[in-house]
Amino acid sequence: MSSLLKLATDLEQKSREQQQSTEKMLKAAFSGHEKSVSEALNSSLSRISDAISAHEKGMAEAMQSNRLSVMRMVGRTWLTITLVSGLLFASLSGVLWYQGSLIASNLAEIDRQNAALSKLNVKTWGVEFREGTNGRYLLLPKGTEADTNWTIDKRRAVKLVKE
């Protein structure tokens, strides 16, 4: 029995040694694996950080370029609005000036025609000519009568006599 006990203790001893050897081997393997995974993660982290930085830099440049484009577009739009407003103001001012000059010339023509009408009324002593459905008539001024027994140059004439 003592040999069996010795065999069991030897087996237990070998098992412990083998366990310790396996632990050391696994620790070494896991340590190397952990190191390579850690390096891979750090490398990935560095690449991702570099990519994010490059993307942020690119986005910042794109935003700056877009901001400048928008500012140029807004400037052009306001310039266009200002020019169109100026042209519209100038053309409307021209139209108003032209219409004002037409109105002034029409008023002057009306004044000339009223003066001519006044002269004609003085020369015709207020006699008016009218045409109706029954024929043509001469209207005598108020306070006058017609004397129809006259001829001038062998034509019948009407003499106006005050009442």
Results as ranks from 00 to 15, higher is better:
L139A: 07
L88H: 01
S105D: 06
R72N: 10
F89P: 01
K14Y: 04
L83N: 08
K24S: 06
A115V: 12
E145R: 02
R72K: 14
K119E: 12
S46E: 04
S49D: 01
E17C: 05
S44V: 08
L88N: 05
L160G: 03
L160E: 01
Q19H: 07
S21H: 14
E109T: 01
W125A: 00
L41T: 05
S36Q: 10
M73D: 01
A54E: 06
D147C: 01
L79R: 11
D111S: 15
A146N: 02
V122C: 07
A29V: 13
S53E: 04
I110F: 10
L117T: 14
R130I: 06
E17L: 15
K123W: 07
K24Y: 10
T151N: 06
G100N: 03
L102A: 11
D147Y: 11
G75T: 07
L41R: 08
N134L: 12
V37D: 04
T148C: 07
L138P: 00
T9V: 09
R112D: 08
R76K: 10
A29T: 12
K119L: 14
L68R: 14
R16E: 06
V95W: 02
D50M: 03
E34W: 00
T77A: 09
V127T: 02
W125Y: 12
S38F: 02
L92E: 10
A157M: 05
I110H: 04
L92N: 03
N106M: 08
T144H: 08
L117C: 05
A62M: 06
V127C: 03
N134I: 07
D111C: 07
K142N: 03
A8M: 12
I103M: 07
K14L: 15
H55K: 13
S15T: 10
S69K: 13
E56H: 11
S15E: 09
G75S: 13
R76H: 10
K123F: 09
E56L: 14
I103F: 00
N66A: 14
S21V: 09
A8L: 14
L79M: 09
R67W: 06
V127M: 04
N66P: 02
V95Q: 11
T77V: 01
L7E: 10
T22A: 13
K119N: 14
L117M: 14
G132N: 03
K6Q: 15
M59P: 01
Y137C: 07
E17W: 09
N121T: 15
K27T: 06
S91K: 05
N114C: 11
A60G: 05
L140V: 09
H33F: 14
Q13D: 11
E131T: 03
L138N: 02
E23Q: 12
E12N: 08
G94D: 02
L96C: 11
V84S: 08
S105K: 11
L88T: 10
S31M: 07
S69V: 04
E23S: 13
N42K: 15
R67N: 08
Q20E: 06
D10E: 15
H55I: 07
A28M: 07
